[in-house]
Write a protein that binds this DNA or RNA. Structure first.
Length: 420
DNA sequence: TGTCCACTGGAAGGGAGGGCTT
DNA sequence: AAGCCCTCCCTTCCAGTGGACA
């Protein structure tokens, strides 16, 4: 009988969903990963890249290409779009289709893993650990060179490789890949590097740099009107006719344009707004839905980031929170470390070194959960001034889900320095 | 003008945990 | 089983530093 009472409301939800107004025609279209038939306002970049890759149609070699622009300016989409078109053309005219491998360097961020993925692309299975890196590279190179073929390697978020290590490791990948062509007898390698951050070039080995940026292309941010065009095009295939209320597209574009013209963001925003409307069985996606989608997305990103933090990062963050709660307006690294040590002692965790905590603080800063910047207090040393930059209610509600943090719920920090 | 604080942040390396090879 | 290798998380060591203060 418990089963019955459980099933009924669910049945209702199912029925309401099936019989209610339909919002989405094709939800997948409203995801940033979807590559449409047309990419509005990127015609210049498309033709430019297409032109640079022309030799592939004759099985020849090409220069490497470097694409640069802020997030959501269509770099990856354009690259994938051009690849798709090239493949289509190659099969149409009967030329060997080039191999393509798209690597997101944010996830695949070590030399070993990149070579392992490339080896996979040419049909060699490499275990995810165990082999020497050199061996993986060698196998990839030999297998690739067995026949006359071209491989186009798209290195998305290539800046991540350079940031992680200064000179060795991942950077070595770039060095080896950019000069691999001179070792190959039959095959060709073409690299398309994509980056959000132009500054990363400063840290790049000059030999890699000159090879990578043989051809460089900048993607400017989209203007609000351009975002509107993109959204309209997607909405037409993604949503049912007439469900988008007047002004909805405009407000979505305006909100996304504020975030440096991020098309990905705009598309996500419209999709989530649509999902909200769908959940409420509304007949139209309104401006109100978009605004709520905006806060929902922000909320979700923060929550997800907080939940996945390792325990010591949570403890560091909680220390900062407790210090702020105690009315401290100026919080420095030293204070955080003292508070953090107290918390660790309280719940019997090993205390990490200050050096390590300093890195954790930097990570929290990069995630946008706190802001920390280096200041000098003159005679009283150099340190970081730190504060929490997300709503406290979200912070506590998520952190206190963790059993370790729960024990600290009513903990009050020992005052260790007189008011100054 | 020089000193000196409280760190910052780079470099190197250890060791645990995953795996492969012989 | 022994000898490698890779990655992640962490420690140890240390040179470097902006600016208030004597």
């Amino acid at each position: 009988m418990a089963r019955n009472s459980n099933q009924k409301p669910l049945d209702k939800i199912f029925d309401d969903f099936l019989s209610g107004p339909k919002i989405f025609k094709n939800r997948e279209v409203m995801r940033a990963t979807y590559i449409p038939e047309d990419l509005p306002h990127r015609e210049t970049q498309i033709t430019e890249i297409g032109r640079k890759l022309l030799p592939i149609l004759e099985g020849g070699s090409t220069s490497n290409i470097f694409l640069y622009g802020k997030t959501g300016t269509g770099k990856t989409a354009v690259a994938l779009y051009v690849l798709k078109k090239i493949v289509a053309k190659c099969s149409e005219i009967g030329v060997d289709i080039p191999l393509r491998e798209v690597i997101n360097c944010k996830d695949i961020d070590t030399d070993y893993r990149i070579f392992a993925q490339l080896a996979g692309a040419v049909g060699v299975d490499v275990p995810f650990t165990g082999w020497p890196t050199d061996k993986v590279f060698k196998i990839f190179k030999e297998k690739l060179d067995e026949k006359r073929q071209t491989i186009i390697i798209v290195l998305d978020e290539i800046d991540q490789l350079v940031k992680k290590s200064s000179m060795k490791g991942p950077q070595k990948v770039l060095y080896l890949l950019t000069r691999i062509n001179s070792d190959l007898r039959n095959a060709n390698v073409c690299i398309i590097g994509i980056s959000n951050d132009l500054k990363f070039k400063e840290y790049l080995d000059p030999r890699v740099l000159s090879s990578l940026s043989e051809e460089e292309l900048v993607f400017p941010p989209y203007q609000a009107t351009e975002l509107q065009d993109i959204l309209r095009q997607r909405a037409e295939i993604g949503f049912h006719d007439g469900v988008i209320d007047s002004g909805t597209i405009e407000i979505t574009a305006a909100l996304a344009a504020r975030e440096h013209g991020d098309a990905r963001r705009a598309i996500d925003l419209l999709r989530v707004a649509g999902e909200l409307a769908e959940r409420e069985s509304a007949t139209k996606v309104t401006q109100n839905h978009v605004r709520r989608a905006q806060t929902l997305i922000e909320h979700d990103t923060i929550s997800a980031a907080l939940r996945t933090l390792p325990i010591h990062s949570k403890l560091v963050l909680y220390s900062i929170y407790l210090l702020e709660k105690d009315g401290n307006t100026e919080i420095y690294t030293g204070d955080v470390y003292t508070a953090y040590s107290q918390l660790c002692t309280e719940i019997k965790y090993d205390i990490l070194t200050q050096r390590r905590v300093s890195d954790l603080i930097n990570e929290l800063d990069m995630l946008g959960i706190i802001t920390a910047h280096v200041i000098s207090k003159g005679r009283y040393g150099r340190t970081k001034k730190i504060r929490v930059s997300i709503p406290k209610t979200i912070l506590t509600s998520i952190l206190e889900e963790d059993t370790a943090i729960q024990k600290l719920k009513n903990y009050s920090l020992e005052l260790k320095k007189e008011a100054s």
